[in-house]
Design a protein around this nucleic acid. Sequence first.
DNA 1: CCGCGATGTCTCGACGTCAAGAGAGTTGAT
DNA 2: ATCAACTCTCTTGACGTCGAGACATCGCGG
Lengths: 165, 165
Amino acid sequence: MEDEVDRLVAAWRRERPDLDVEPLEVLSRVSRLARHLDRARRLAFSEHSLEPWEFDVLTALRRAGSPYQLSPGQLLTQTLVTSGTMTNRIDRLAKKGLVERLPDPSDRRGVLVRLTDVGRDRADQALAGLLAQERAILGELSSAQRGELAALLRQLTAPFDNVPG
Amino acid sequence: MEDEVDRLVAAWRRERPDLDVEPLEVLSRVSRLARHLDRARRLAFSEHSLEPWEFDVLTALRRAGSPYQLSPGQLLTQTLVTSGTMTNRIDRLAKKGLVERLPDPSDRRGVLVRLTDVGRDRADQALAGLLAQERAILGELSSAQRGELAALLRQLTAPFDNVPG
DNA sequence: CCGCGATGTCTCGACGTCAAGAGAGTTGAT
DNA sequence: ATCAACTCTCTTGACGTCGAGACATCGCGG
């Protein structure tokens, strides 16, 4: 089946036959798919009264394991946002009672953000919902294809994730 | 090589061994890679004094072919933003002299957005820069792998692009 | 023990996006 | 002709993010 990127690439080949636009076949699809996924996630999370950004922060803490606490700095690197944004997010989550701020006992500059019990339950519920939705989206692919796709994508993401790029 | 999603998936398996988190292997990588690509693109475009959103609009017009004009509505569907956003974008691009607004001769509600000569040159230069950067990112993969990856991604994007979802 | 660069968090202003709705114009049925 | 439903673009206000800089603290080298 044809997709929007096929049309996009065809248009470029017509307008700029001198250029090799093959890279777009991969990377434009990644960008557009991510955009679609964002929208779908927003819908899935709204059933749990969560925004995507709330989910990102809560699940980062949830994954950390008991006692479910991380520093704002650690949250930054996991969620790929800036420090000003994270301060704002923590404020809002704290106001909703999903996380709480604690002073870091070993560094007085620092703060620890801890998931509340309510926050943990919300994160768990929303994760289950997200996985159900993602399984539906991936239904198109066989198990072997999913494995291939994951491996190929890993080759592209690894350089970003490992060097400080 | 390991990436951030490997670590993320391992953490979930430790914390929630009852859940099958395999879908994340694919879709979390897509989202994270898109995020990294955004940053890289922003950097590449800054050499041509363009923002990513400016590039998106200018190239949509460029791809349309001579006389390089589309309605705001057509631009919406290609760039996946809302109408308020597009109005704002056109305003700013017009102020910079990269596009101009013309009345649609066949529908007096409508407007046509046309690329100026300056805008066309900018779009062409930025596209060349983008392709160079993307080739570098894809350098990790063989030609056959790029083809596979594109085909697999197409299977995921096609449902979004074809049904009005 | 002191000084100084590095580090961690927060503050602030500017900016881009979204969602909802208003206004103008079009279309087709009566 | 006329009217209602629809389409297209723009306006508005709220919101989340970013980037730069402020401020306190840490920890290493002299």
